[in-house]
Design a protein around this nucleic acid. Structure first.
Lengths: 228, 228
DNA sequence: GAAGCATATTTTGTCGATATTTATTGATTT
DNA sequence: AAATCAATAAATATCGACAAAATATGCTTC
């Protein structure tokens, strides 16, 4: 009843891709940072060929930019960009949601219930720094589950790409303290409306949910700019 | 008043990327085709390292898929996919259009007029096989000009990506004869509505325009399936 | 001390060769 | 004839070294 997730073998290029992707999203490789192959070779313990392949793939994800003959850099952040990302994410995620609520079967419902449960468990707990990553992962799973019944491969694929960027901004604002919003309550409302198949309400709540994240990121960016 | 478009120097990896991208869109490298590095090395006269970088970038464009340890393939086509691509393209292009019509300045209008003119010139001419590529290029330019005043970088970027895939399907159906549609008239109507800043009409016309292309591609795919 | 220019250093992009994995062939057995 | 398995061939992914380009350094001149 359970398949092997992925044959444990991963090529060096894939490994480096995953690692660098993670480190960019988590701002361990900060916006604008110069990505020198020699350095990265050290850090990730891979040769330059697989490393450059990984970076090339990240260009496609828009997480890395390349200037001809001048190497690679982590994509910059900006107030305009986070608003743009937020807007497009709302658009894609709501469209996929409408699909999903209309076509989701029992299997989908089970997945949504399960992922929501996993999320809410860790949301109520006191969050020590280490468990914040787990919370983020479960949050991603929940959002993915919600839209997963959409038959549109493109919608899901683009949504996932944009989601990653929005997530990067969210990590950026994790340093600054609580934003006074009640995220668990937001998730609960979204979950409730989704299970009731109330597309209009779900989309409205989701839009607000995403916009709040955008706003928080905007504040973090402003604070950060002051700090310099 | 005029900047250097691009410093004539292009790295081998970029060159290979552009060439392979072109050959996939034009179905010279057909859907599902196995992309062996040794072969491609010959064809494009580049080493394996830049070639693999090019292929890695094409993965991000969703034009190439990679199976771990089993190399690269050109993405498959299918009836479901072309409908999906068409749907998402309508969504992105119309949203960008609404932006563009609302915010387009004189510069934008001039660009639209110019690109439409260039397009209509070659549309009226008798099309010999060779000039079809030129028509396709001008068509791309026209559509790009229309949306170019949108301030959303993400919308434009994703639109361009999806447009490329739709274009591939259009090239697929270019072998089969005329589809009985009057594309010049469609463009004329879109152009007219866009210049009048009538967003609702423009989007409606654009949707129909795109849907017709999707339908044509669907027929071509069906014919092609019969042929086997 | 600032500007210009040649030199040194770093970094990028590329090549050719090689280890490792997958695919193929053909002999051998059931 | 179908299936199994070893041997062979092919293709993928990786490495280490190198050439070309960009950046940094230091020297000269004004």
């Amino acid at each position: 009843m359970n398949f092997v997730e992925d044959q444990g073998f991963m090529t060096d290029a894939e490994l480096a891709y995953a690692a660098i992707h993670h480190d960019i999203i988590h701002n361990r490789l900060p916006p604008g940072h110069k990505l020198k192959v020699a350095e990265l070779r050290e850090t990730y313990k891979v040769g330059s060929a697989p490393l450059r392949e990984a970076l090339s793939r990240l260009i496609g994800d828009r997480l890395v930019v390349q200037q001809s003959q001048r190497g690679f850099r982590v994509k910059q952040t900006s107030a305009e960009d986070v608003q743009d990302v937020g807007r497009v994410r709302v658009m894609l995620e709501c469209e996929a949601l409408r699909d999903s609520l209309a076509k989701g079967d029992d299997e989908w419902e089970a997945r949504v219930v399960a992922s929501y449960h996993r999320l809410s468990l860790v949301e109520r707990r006191e969050r020590d720094e280490e468990q914040l990553d787990e919370l983020e992962a479960r949050n991603t799973d929940f959002h993915e589950a919600l839209v997963s019944a959409s038959p549109s491969w493109w919608l899901l694929e683009l949504r996932r790409q944009v989601y990653a960027h929005h997530e990067r901004y969210r990590y950026l604002s994790r340093t600054t303290g609580g934003s006074g919003r009640d995220t668990p309550a937001e998730h609960a409302a979204i979950f409730d409306a989704a299970i009731r198949r109330d597309a209009k309400t779900t989309c409205a709540l989701m839009t607000k949910h995403i916009d709040l994240t955008t706003d928080t990121a905007l504040h973090a960016l402003a604070d950060q700019a002051k700090g310099d």
